[in-house]
Design a protein around this nucleic acid. Structure first.
Lengths: 151, 151
DNA sequence: TTTGTTGCAAAACGTTTGCAGCCTC
DNA sequence: GAGGCTGCAAACGTTTTGCAACAAA
């Protein structure tokens, strides 16, 4: 039972945040949070929107609004990656990892490296309060490397 | 005279790339490359477009087209950062550095850390050919940290 | 001469905003 | 009951695209 990151706990974190900031605890906000925490992997606003239509109907505007709040209380992080749409990812229950991004096809793979993690986390600044970090390694995935040889 | 990265060399790299890919060597492409390499710092497509109007008139479409080519031959890199416009940066003649990004106001500061650099560069993958990497540390800059206390 | 490239304008795309009605507090 | 929140649709800003004219090969 290593489930410290069960949805109950996450929900409490969000509730606490909403209270502190005097934001309202609307069903939409919890529905979005729940959907995010019950699913795996990266997502963008539209993917989330489409996926949610089945169980709980929310507008895209509300999705964007809520993602903003979740970012603010660090329950999710935003990944720029390469494409034109912002990718999000939940923070709790995820092991810390880094990203390999193929410059050609945009495919994203995750990897984990303890040494890199430790080295980065050791860093701190007097005039900047670090909350999180992202490391992206760019290059060519095998598939694109092979295709490239032809052109 | 440590100018291995003078514009002449860069220009040759680009020429070689254009020939290899059988792309045409148009004056616009060289004008854009030259402008990028003769100026410092990050830029986005529109900034480059506006800046170039004075010396050489190119359309935004051509700017985007050429940036694509320059990315492809690794003469520039693309930074997603946080905002809605992609930021670019030349690769040669720049010391390797990392970025501090303020989640609140979007301010970007550069820093350099040899240990981090070495650790990351030691990494390699069998099925992925790394061309470059980006490390972003996110958090609150001093200015925003102070403002936040109020709300 | 051929065909890739340019410039322009229009279109597309993700995201934000204005506003009327709703619902949390 | 008041005011923040929602949904909708329209607006926005960045990037992409279609097409005719142009110019590199």
């Amino acid at each position: 039972m290593r489930e410290d990151n069960s949805y109950e706990v996450i929900r409490d974190v969000f509730t606490e945040y909403l209270i502190k900031k005097q934001h309202r605890k609307t069903p939409e906000r919890y529905a979005i949070l729940e959907h995010i925490y019950l699913h795996e992997g990266h997502f963008d606003a539209e993917l989330l929107y489409n996926a949610m239509q089945k169980d709980y109907r929310v507008s895209l505007a509300t999705i964007y609004n809520t993602l903003e709040l979740l970012l603010d209380c660090s329950l999710i992080v935003k990944h720029p990656f390469v494409g034109q749409t912002a990718q999000f990812e939940k923070t709790f229950g995820n092991s810390i990892h880094h990203h390999l991004v193929c410059s050609k096809c945009g495919a994203v793979k995750e990897f984990s490296d303890k040494k890199i993690r430790t080295t980065i986390q050791a860093k701190n600044f007097a005039s900047f309060e670090i909350t999180h970090y992202s490391l992206y390694l760019y290059g060519l995935c095998n598939k694109c490397k092979n295709e490239r040889k032809k052109s």
